[in-house]
């Protein structure tokens, strides 16, 4: 049953991608599918895709799992990395050192933030909603306090800028990294003991408990991974925009959840596929670019995302009924 459901979701998402692409070409002309626009869309996918993968991981673990702190932690990692390096490493003299230490510090911040979320959810026993709501404010608050609320410009740092904006062999580097990370995550979830235990934990916590699955350690690792994913998103954002600020992507919390729900990840836990998250992220990105081409206001875009989220929640309801009802 699960295979059929998954294939259905997968083919549905593939069709959605094609449909959006066709609609875009019909509405705006072939400019939409020239190499430049395709590359620019591809380089915009990773930041949201990575955050959505984090949301998927948290949802998989069940028990109302969700990570609301993703974009806040992404911004914080960028801000901290920039502030540490601003006075220690000159981006002009040693751009490569700057870039690698930027990535290293950002990842360390993401790891620390993820560990904090992990401890709160697994050991302190907080509900994921409350824990990540609190840390969302906390991370944002620290980023505001550190920067006094203003955006910080990185300036042009060649390797970092290349990573964000220059394609290699036609593929933007940050998109390639996103696909690589998604692939790794997919393999881990599908084939490793950790992935199988995580899905079991999400679909039936009681059975998982009696099967001897270490619940606390699983949750801790899951939320730590979410934090690391968020910091990778932070690096991508810094590379693409050449700046770090505390309020970048204010509606990303919604959009990351929307991507996960569109991908068929069950908010109650236990089910979700990485490939579906990728396809759902690309479909959403193409839709967003289409809105750009048609000069549609940001306000209407938020409206459309909200409607889409509700529609997909409704659609998943119908799917589940159709597939689960015959068993009873």
């Amino acid at each position: 049953m699960k295979g059929a459901l998954a294939d259905r979701q997968l083919s549905f998402l593939a069709l959605t991608n094609v449909a959006v692409l066709l609609a875009a070409v019909l509405l705006t002309g072939s400019g939409f599918i020239d190499l430049y626009n395709l590359q620019s869309m591809a380089s915009q996918v990773p930041e949201l895709g990575l955050l959505a993968l984090g949301v998927m991981l948290a949802m998989l673990s069940g028990n109302g799992g969700i990570d609301l702190s993703g974009i806040a932690l992404a911004n914080l990692s960028g801000v901290v990395a920039y502030l540490v390096l601003r006075d220690t490493v000159s981006a002009d003299d040693a751009p490569l050192v700057f870039t690698w230490s930027f990535a290293g510090i950002a990842l360390a911040v993401g790891l620390a933030g993820g560990v904090l979320n992990g401890i709160l959810v697994s050991h302190a026993g907080l509900t994921p909603i409350i824990a990540t709501l609190g840390t969302q404010l906390f991370f944002t608050g620290i980023a505001v306090a550190l920067t006094n609320g203003s955006a910080q410009t990185l300036g042009y740092v060649e390797p970092l800028d290349d990573f964000g904006n220059t394609p290699v062999l036609g593929v933007p580097q940050c998109f390639a990294l996103f696909i690589l990370i998604a692939l790794l995550l997919g393999i881990v979830l599908r084939f490793s003991g950790f992935g199988i235990r995580l899905r079991l934990l999400g679909s039936n916590p009681k059975a998982a408990h009696y099967a001897g699955i270490p619940r606390r350690r699983m949750l801790f690792l899951t939320y730590t991974a979410c934090g690391v994913l968020a910091s990778v998103a932070g690096i991508v954002i810094a590379a693409r925009t050449s700046s770090v600020k505390w309020d970048y992507g204010s509606s990303y919390v919604l959009i990351a959840i929307l991507i996960a729900v569109m991908a068929g990840v069950r908010p109650e836990g236990g089910y979700g596929r990485v490939i579906c998250v990728i396809l759902s992220a690309t479909a959403l990105q193409m839709l967003s670019s289409l809105f750009n081409f048609m000069d549609i206001s940001n306000f209407f875009r938020d409206f459309a995302w909200g409607v889409l989220l509700l529609l997909f929640l409704a659609a998943s309801q119908i799917d589940l009924r159709a597939w689960i009802a015959p068993r009873h």
Binding site: I66, S251, V253, L254, I257, L258, V261, P267, F299, F300, R301, D302, F303, A304, W305, G306, V307, L309, L310, L313
Partner: peptide
Amino acid sequence: IVTIGTQYVIRG
């Protein structure tokens, strides 16, 4: 999740 959706619908 539902009210995050309606929040954006209403504000949008």
